[in-house]
Nucleic acid binder design. Structure first.
Lengths: 96, 96
DNA sequence: TGAATATATGAACAAGTATTCATATATTAT
DNA sequence: ATAATATATGAATACTTGTTCATATATTCA
C-alpha cells in the first residue's frame, strides 16, 4: 500500500500540471470542445506564447493532446481521467 | 459553463496542495489511517518541522484535518474527495 | 521562391515555494 | 513551577516555475 518514490513524483507532477489558474482555465475551455492555440489564447485572455508554453506542460503530462491540421493545432483533453479530476476538484472547491 | 476567475484560482490552489511529492506521500500515508506528526515524519522520512509546514498547507486546503489528543495531533484525510482525487491521479499515472 | 500565418522554443527575469534552523506554544508529568 | 515532549511558526536561503520578448520552425498561398 505504500507509495513508491517514483509514483509519488509522477503524481506530484500530474497535479502540478493543474496547479496554475491559467492552465485550469485552459482545461476548462477544452472541456467543451477541441480548440486551436489562438482561440484558447483569446478565450483565456493570455498571449499565444504563454498559452503555447502552458500547453507544452499539459501535453507532457498527457492531460491534453494536439491534432495538427494544416498550420493549426487543435487541442483536446487527452482522456476521461482529466475531466474527472477537474470535476472532482471543482466539486471539492464548491462544497468541500 | 465558463469557469470564473475565483474558481480557477481555488482549483489551482487545490491541485497545488497535491503538487509536491512529499505532500503526496503524506496523503498516501493518511489513506490507511490517521497518524500523528512524528509518525508521519518517520513514515515519509521528513523532518518534523518540514512535515508540520506541509500539513499546514494541506489543512488550509481542507485536504486533511487534525484531531488534538493531549499533546499529539492526529491527522486524517478531510473527506472522500481527497481519496478519490488521489486515486484517480494514481490511475492516470499508472495507465494514463 | 518569398511572404504571411500558426505555433513552438530559448533565455532572462520575476514571483512563488520548500527546507532548514532556531524558537515558540501547548500539554503532561514530576 | 520546572522539565520533557509534541507540534507549530518565522526568517533566511535555495530552488522551482511562469511570463515576456525575441526568434525559430512549419505550413499555406501567391
Amino acid at each position: 500500500m505504500t507509495l513508491n518514490e517514483l509514483k509519488a513524483i509522477q503524481l506530484a507532477e500530474l497535479f502540478s500540471a493543474l496547479s496554475d489558474a491559467n492552465r485550469v482555465r485552459i482545461i476548462s475551455t477544452l472541456l467543451e470542445k477541441e480548440m486551436n492555440v489562438s482561440d484558447i489564447a483569446e478565450k483565456t485572455q493570455m498571449s499565444e506564447s504563454a498559452v503555447s508554453h502552458q500547453l507544452r506542460g499539459l501535453r507532457q503530462m498527457r492531460l491534453i493532446r494536439g491534432r495538427k491540421s494544416g498550420r493549426q493545432v487543435f487541442y483536446s483533453l487527452d482522456d476521461d481521467h482529466v475531466k474527472k479530476l477537474y470535476l472532482m476538484g471543482l466539486d471539492h472547491v464548491k462544497h468541500g
